[in-house]
Design a protein around this nucleic acid. Sequence first.
DNA 1: GGAGGGCGGATTGTGCACAATATGGCACAT
DNA 2: ATGTGCCATATTGTGCACAATCCGCCCTCC
Lengths: 239, 239
Amino acid sequence: MSTDAKLRPDPAAAEHDEPDVERRIYRTIFDSVMNQRLTPGARLPETQLCELFGVSRAVVRRVLQRLAHDHIVELRPNRGAIVAIPTPEETRQIFEARQGLEAALVRLATRNGTPEDFADMRRHLREEHEAMHRFDQPSWARLASAFHLRLAAVARNPILEAFLNEIVTRCSLIVALYQPWGNASCEHDEHARIVERMEAGDAEGAIRLMHEHLVVLERNVCLKRADAEPSLKQRLGLA
Amino acid sequence: MSTDAKLRPDPAAAEHDEPDVERRIYRTIFDSVMNQRLTPGARLPETQLCELFGVSRAVVRRVLQRLAHDHIVELRPNRGAIVAIPTPEETRQIFEARQGLEAALVRLATRNGTPEDFADMRRHLREEHEAMHRFDQPSWARLASAFHLRLAAVARNPILEAFLNEIVTRCSLIVALYQPWGNASCEHDEHARIVERMEAGDAEGAIRLMHEHLVVLERNVCLKRADAEPSLKQRLGLA
DNA sequence: GGAGGGCGGATTGTGCACAATATGGCACAT
DNA sequence: ATGTGCCATATTGTGCACAATCCGCCCTCC
């Protein structure tokens, strides 16, 4: 009796988790990239992924293709997949795009956010604040990104939300490349002030704060960009 | 020896255009959707596509998956692919997202556009104008969309450009669904005025004009949305 | 006559085997 | 000793065959 999902003679515990396993693999790789266990340039051989997740190559290929479309991995023909390596030029474009997207999202979130939404965001800010004071860098980095995603959710537009999700993901890649130690710029206050302006209905003020916040973010990356040593060695962290 | 460019009976002219043929199939389906030769709900059986393009199912599947990621087709498990059918709610979201995106793009295009860019756009506007006066509805629809894509290109941000490309594509799907006859709202002047404001360096003015232009566009669709029932019948008939 | 169940055709999902291609090491010539 | 070309190996790309699933149809039963 194998626990392998493919070999299940039992029709009661039906197998409709086939799309689920695909999502699981995607999330695993995605989270590994976010947590910097998989750094830009890391190779992702199909065969290894197959035996690691116990699926066939067709499944792995679909997942890799989705990741490639989301610009998380790069598919090099006949040479395999690697975790994407954003170039400096792409970095500039990503931050520029993010400025435009976040402005639109702040405007919508100010219009559509309910008091519960803002209360939720404040609760989120407290977590973020605590993580920062605990010097819990991984949690803090995740929460700091989550703030922007939460804001996008409050805007009530799944399309723009998906766009920002992709952009934030790529920003995390950039941080992994150009800022591997992750110095915690104390952006908590900036987040808090943005929420405050939004709750007051001052969309333009919130947009201005967000703009400045993102400028600071980009500058932090740019400063480190000079000493970007491609650490293309010692990867393969998933076991 | 077929005159059909898609069939490649000649083995001598070796096949190293494998990434190219994939892009060609994508573009063919994409353009067909844009030209409304493929209307929402149309089925896309893998086998037929295989023999039409003379490729194997693996290739067709990759193309269909890319189209699905771009929200041009919908992949229903075990039931095949169909051209995507935007819902009214999605329509609202798409136009809302488009407002935000185009505002950002107009701002960037105003900043980054060269005199040559604007001259090019004016040339484009003349074509558009002529097509409209020729009552050449297919050309006009294509050119009207192309104006917005051209503007996105002038903004010099490939990421936002790609986002707008996806949005405009989905808008074309919506027009195909809710506005099948395609009444030519004479938006030429609106386009022209936007270019004029951008060339004058007045980003905010151009953004306001673009906003109003898009409002008109959406209202044209909304007005027709009430009597969209015949399309629903078609949807059921094809599905 | 209507409803439910079973059946056949068609289409997609998956695994496997083989071909094509790139990479790295090795031998050889200079 | 160094540069060059070739070959072995690993990895990806592709086609094929079979299994699973779904839809529409028809037959049977109530």
